[in-house]
């Protein structure tokens, strides 16, 4: 489902003496349907960079990243937009929303974007918010004023609203209490059972051991960092 072939990444900082920083080189990675792969490696190894390349918000300088028949390295913006709407979900660590939009609509939006009728989309959003223990009295408020943990749970609800065939998870269990962590792990297991291919970053080792089928150490692809 997700296929990385000889992927490379450099940053060129034009305003800082045109420094060229080689971040990743020779990344090969393949994730099958229903499989969850963890990216590991020390801080600065390039886990988040690789994740952003797979989502397409970092440009890739070499190789191919294929997801559901689209090569993100070559694709036109509109192909990536469609891929993100229909195929590739991303749960980032931070919630970014239009201020003033109620939580319920924030969560339902990915479903509305693929044409699910409002009633069905809102029903799914309610059920997810309930599972993630967001109190009902908050649903009509914008999540911008919520606590960090609440925002993260809203972000997760939004990320799991549409059943994407491929998902990227950036620290989905960070800053959650035991009960909510359990809910998130169950959501991941459910998505896997439905055939979703997942790549995740988990600093929570027990969570990683439970939901991930394999680990890939990104430092192996980091020039100057490999042992």
């Amino acid at each position: 489902m997700i296929e990385l072939n000889n992927v490379a990444k450099t940053f060129t900082l034009h305003n800082q003496g045109s420094a060229v920083i080689e971040v990743l080189r020779g990344v090969f990675l393949s994730v099958a349907q229903g499989e969850c792969v963890a990216l590991t490696g020390a801080s600065g190894a390039g886990k988040s960079t690789l994740m952003r390349m797979i989502y397409g918000n970092y440009l890739t300088q070499g190789g191919a990243i294929r997801i559901g028949g689209v090569d993100l390295v070559q694709a036109e913006p509109r192909e990536i937009i469609r891929l993100r709407r229909e195929v590739l979900g991303y749960v980032s660590q931070f919630l970014r929303v239009v201020p003033r939009v109620p939580t319920l609509d924030v969560v339902a939006e990915p479903l509305r974007a693929v044409g699910v009728p409002p009633d069905a989309a809102l029903a799914r959003a309610r059920s997810l918010l309930q599972q993630l223990n967001i109190p009902e009295r908050l649903w009509t408020l914008s999540p911008t004023t919520f606590s960090g943990g609440e925002q993260q749970r809203v972000n997760i609800a939004r990320g799991f609203a549409h059943p994407y065939p491929a998902m990227l998870l950036d620290e989905p269990t960070a800053s959650l209490d035991a009960a909510n962590r359990e809910v998130v792990l169950a959501l991941i297991e459910e998505a896997k059972a439905q055939g979703t291919a997942i790549i995740g970053i988990f600093h929570d080792e027990a969570a990683r051991a439970r939901v991930c089928d394999r680990e890939i150490d990104v430092s192996g692809f980091t020039p100057g960092m490999a042992a």
Binding site: F11, T12, L13, H14, N15, R52, G56, N57, Y58, L59, P77, I80, I81
Partner: peptide, 21 residues
């Protein structure tokens, strides 16, 4: 030019880098 979050998160041209930073 490109996807909005790509241009904002990983700008390639010197001027875009300056603008974003």
């Amino acid at each position: 030019s490109g996807l909005t979050d790509q241009v904002l998160d990983d700008p390639q041209h010197a001027y875009s880098q300056l603008l974003v930073s």
